[in-house]
Design a protein around this nucleic acid. Structure first.
Lengths: 142, 142
DNA sequence: CTTGAACCTAAAGTTGCTAGAGGATGTAGC
DNA sequence: GCTACATCCTCTAGCAACTTTAGGTTCAAG
């Protein structure tokens, strides 16, 4: 019988995150002690490890939910899992391309910083000027 | 005199986002018409362009705030701006390294999918198994 | 039996926006 | 001057995926 803290340590998750996963139905409601504390078994440990590994690969929680469902139903065809993975791969490659462009521009900025006053600073100048960059008006970050 | 919609179009921002920037103090409170609609000048257009370009480079709003302050004080030494840019560059490089590892693992998963049933699916198997991957217990996504 | 680490719930905060409701304004054409 | 109607306004809530805080309870070791 594992406490939530042990589960957390073993999977590199925060305790609160585990409770959050329970809240949104990604982890099952575990058994409790008389005093009301959660106690887990190995099945839960495995499930959480699956979730965390998937998160580390960047899968959103919704996709993980689907993957867990598939994982629980061994007779269903697996092309759905494959689909999800391919989609994720595409996203990752998109982000990589974007980051590459960003890195190039940041490198240029840093390299050309005069080290003098803000008024001559290339960093600020480059930020002020859109014209040299790929003006894709879309989202970043995620 | 520019309306908020014009400003939005010119900078590739949504109208609500501009109002949001105003709310958090990143954009100044502009003048208003008698009826209460916002009217902007070119200074505001430039400022917004600066913000958007910085966001496209992945700078968080806090960093942009600092950069704007620097930009407003031309006599301050620019090494702070340089610092911020370097920090950002480091973050970007970190993310790139991480994404590269992810891509490799995703590619492997996709390649080895048998196309059969979920019970033999490598995608699910790989997700179940942490041992082959760099088990860095830290955040992803951002 | 005491101490203190680890547990509990519930609610709010984080980042950077986006979306919707419900209504007011501005401007172009007639 | 009047009517459409695109655009503007405020306010509130929502998104992902958690994290933090507050205020209290339980468990296990010594």
């Amino acid at each position: 019988m594992l406490t939530i803290g042990t589960l957390a340590k073993r999977t590199g998750t925060k305790v609160q995150t585990i409770r959050y996963y329970e809240q949104i139905g990604l982890m099952p409601e575990p058994g409790r002690t008389e005093g009301g504390q959660r106690r887990y078994g190995n099945a839960e440990l495995d499930r959480l490890a699956f979730i965390r590994h998937s998160r580390q690969l960047g899968f959103p929680l919704d996709a993980i939910r689907e993957l867990l469902d598939l994982s629980d139903a061994p007779d269903r065809p697996c092309h759905e899992a494959d689909e999800i993975a391919r989609r994720q791969l595409k996203l990752v490659e998109q982000r990589m391309r974007r980051l590459k462009a960003l890195r190039a521009e940041l490198k240029r900025m840093v390299k050309e910083c005069s080290g003098g006053k803000a008024s001559q600073c290339r960093v600020l100048e480059v930020l002020r000027d859109h014209s040299e960059c790929l003006t894709e008006h879309d989202q970043i970050g995620t």
